[in-house]
Amino acid sequence: MAPQENPALSGPILEEQDEFSITEICSICAVEERQILELVEQGIIETHSVTQWHFSASDLRRARISLRLQRDLGVNPAGAALVLDLLERVESLERRVHRDT
């Protein structure tokens, strides 16, 4: 039997995408729009335009972390916002320690 040739699939790096619509964020995070709106309300992610909701790759990352914290550790959105801020501080401190070693 002749081997089947699987055509090579290619696609972009998700994290390098310039912007995401709210539908895309919902799809990628596999959540309902309501949960994304909650993240916006808490200031965890921000839309960059009023008419059409656009989110950055950094927003996507924050959304995923928040949703995982909520799902896995029972953190509420306000708590998730706090954790994200603290994580950012820790990362920034670690970079500084790294540099000075």
């Binding site: 699939l9 290619s10 696609g11 972009p12 790096i13 998700l14 994290e15 390098e16």
Partner: peptide
Amino acid sequence: RIPRGIQAGQHIR
């Protein structure tokens, strides 16, 4: 196709 320069934890869409 693995994009050149992709980092661990990033996603290919």
